[in-house]
């Protein structure tokens, strides 16, 4: 680990800088994912999406943000106040935290020091992400409960049940990858995917037989992030926006941010685990800065693809019924994940 080379004060400074940049990028990305979604879905539905603010509506996120900031922050009278206020914070904090262990590129060598493009590399990084996302459910659940509103409560209940259920499939789908790479460290996992078969097929996990695992992960991840077709907790038509019915202004914005930040995390994770992360063709004759920048670009591109699929799915699929959702999770996804796991284990062993 290159960080060992850094003196402690420098390490702290560098980490702070990395965090600041990453946070900025992330929040921007969140804002523009929203824009992207509106735009893409608009085009899919044969309309324009946001166009008014800025060119192609590019300033729309800024306008929305301002509006959230300046709107009156209503607190309904019968809510359970401490949790009502804490819930969105929990949601957004845990959504943003998980980005800390995600590597987004190779290491940079500046002077004598090697600085990994990642806030911190923990050897159980993947578990940490799982842990943090699993705590994120409290935000939704508590919001639903503390609102003291039956729609919210139902939304919160659905969210927690759904997230706990699908987390199992999610976790199991990752175990296949873990078996192949033999590590929980995301950096190791990515590094294990370097190289090619027959010179042109990259050794990404998805090409090493984790196709099923990938799709299980994808589906479970959609459910985890409460996205269509699994957006039951906030189903507008039946639950009047579910757990955030009672929220407005900045608190609502926090949930919004948390949801999109989670989407991004999930997308990052998918590209790291299944699509080789920042691996991609880098011709050796390119100058050094490109050796650093290109992987980041590849990584961002893969993440973008995922986000696009997210939006695409939203534009295409209808919502599940709740019992269908549960049945699907337990009776289909889980067995498939287990079969995948067994198949992987057998394949690796023999």
């Amino acid at each position: 680990m290159g960080t060992h080379a850094l003196p402690i004060w420098l390490f702290i400074v560098v980490s702070a800088i990395k965090s600041a940049i990453l946070l900025f990028v992330l929040l921007t990305a969140v804002a523009y994912t929203v824009w992207l979604e509106r735009k893409v879905v608009g085009h899919m539905q044969n309309r324009w999406g946001p166009t008014r603010v800025g060119p192609f509506g590019l300033l729309q996120p800024a306008a929305d943000g301002l509006k959230f900031l300046f709107k009156e922050d209503l607190t309904p009278p019968h809510v359970y106040k401490p949790l009502y206020i804490a819930a969105p914070m929990i949601a957004v904090i845990f959504a943003l935290t998980s980005i800390a262990v995600i590597p987004f590129g190779n290491s940079v060598v500046i002077g004598r020091y090697t600085i990994p493009l990642q806030i911190t590399d923990v050897n159980v990084g993947l578990l940490l992400i799982l842990g943090i996302t699993s705590i994120g459910v409290y935000g939704v659940a508590l919001a639903g409960w503390s609102s003291n509103n039956k729609y919210s409560l139902l939304g919160g209940l659905r969210a927690s049940a759904q997230m706990v259920s699908y987390e199992i499939s999610l976790g199991l789908s990752l175990v296949g990858v873990l078996i192949m790479s033999g590590s929980f460290s995301l950096r190791h996992i990515v590094e294990a995917q370097q190289g090619h078969f027959w010179g042109f097929i990259p050794r990404w996990n998805i090409f090493q037989g984790q196709v099923v695992g990938f799709f299980v992960y994808l589906i479970a991840a959609y459910a985890e992030t409460n996205r269509i077709p699994f957006d039951l907790p906030e189903a507008e038509t039946e639950l009047v926006a579910g757990y955030h019915t009672e929220y407005s202004a900045m608190k609502f914005a926090m949930f919004f941010m948390a949801e999109y930040a989670n989407m991004i995390t999930v997308a990052c994770l998918a590209s790291l685990l299944f699509l080789g992360g920042w691996n991609g063709p880098i011709p050796a004759w390119l100058p050094y800065p490109l050796h650093v920048i290109l992987p980041v670009v590849y990584f961002v591109a893969k993440v973008f693809v995922f986000l696009f699929i997210y939006i695409w799915v939203r534009g295409t699929l209808p919502r599940f019924r709740y019992d269908q959702l549960m049945a699907f999770g337990w009776k289909f996804l889980l067995p498939v994940a287990i079969c995948n796991l067994i198949a992987t284990a057998v394949a690796v062993t023999w």
Partner: peptide, 10 residues
């Protein structure tokens, strides 16, 4: 925190 306590809260 992520599973058992979620059950409790649930």
């Amino acid at each position: 925190a992520g599973a058992i306590m979620v059950l409790f809260v649930f």
